[in-house]
Amino acid sequence: MNQTPSHSQTPEFGHIPSTGILYQQPPSSEQIARANKRNKLKAFMRDVIAVVVFSSPILATPFAVRSCSDDVDRQAVQAVKFQMEANHERSN
């Protein structure tokens, strides 16, 4: 009984060449074109999302400033009304 110990953990398959290199058909031009379109669409969407994410704070700043300004104006008007009412009550 002559047995040669094998230290390889790779199973032996009858249909694999002895080189161990598997052959795969190259993709068709249609598959390549589809993959290229998909990759271009992904890249375009990444660019669009990046532009939206980075430009939204810049575009939102004037609206935030205006909103704060409106709040300050409203509070100033309320303060003047309150002072006028307080002065009117003191004088009576």
Rank of each mutant, 00 (worst) to 15 (best):
N2R: 05
N2W: 03
Q3D: 06
Q3G: 15
T4G: 04
P5N: 11
S6N: 08
H7S: 14
S8R: 00
S8I: 00
S8T: 02
Q9W: 01
T10N: 10
P11A: 04
F13C: 04
H15M: 05
S18H: 10
S18Y: 04
S18N: 12
T19W: 08
G20N: 02
I21M: 08
L22R: 12
L22M: 07
L22E: 12
Y23G: 01
Y23L: 06
Y23R: 05
Q24E: 08
Q24A: 09
P26F: 01
P27Y: 08
S28G: 06
S29H: 04
E30S: 11
Q31S: 14
I32Q: 11
I32G: 11
A35N: 12
N36Y: 12
N36C: 14
K37T: 09
R38F: 12
R38Y: 08
K42H: 10
A43M: 07
A43P: 05
F44W: 12
F44P: 06
R46T: 06
D47H: 11
D47G: 07
D47E: 13
V48C: 01
I49N: 05
I49E: 04
A50L: 05
A50M: 14
V51P: 02
V51T: 14
V51N: 06
V52N: 13
P57L: 02
P57W: 15
L59H: 07
L59A: 07
A60N: 06
A60W: 15
T61Q: 13
T61F: 12
P62Q: 00
P62N: 00
P62L: 05
A64L: 12
A64I: 11
V65F: 06
R66K: 06
R66I: 13
R66C: 06
R66V: 11
S67N: 12
C68P: 05
S69K: 04
D70P: 15
V72K: 06
D73S: 12
D73R: 07
D73M: 02
D73F: 12
Q75F: 09
Q75M: 09
A76C: 07
A76P: 13
A76I: 02
A79K: 14
V80H: 07
K81T: 14
F82K: 14
Q83I: 14
Q83T: 09
M84F: 13
E85D: 06
E85H: 15
A86D: 11
N87H: 14
N87A: 04
R90V: 01
R90I: 01
R90H: 01
R90K: 15
S91P: 12
S91A: 05
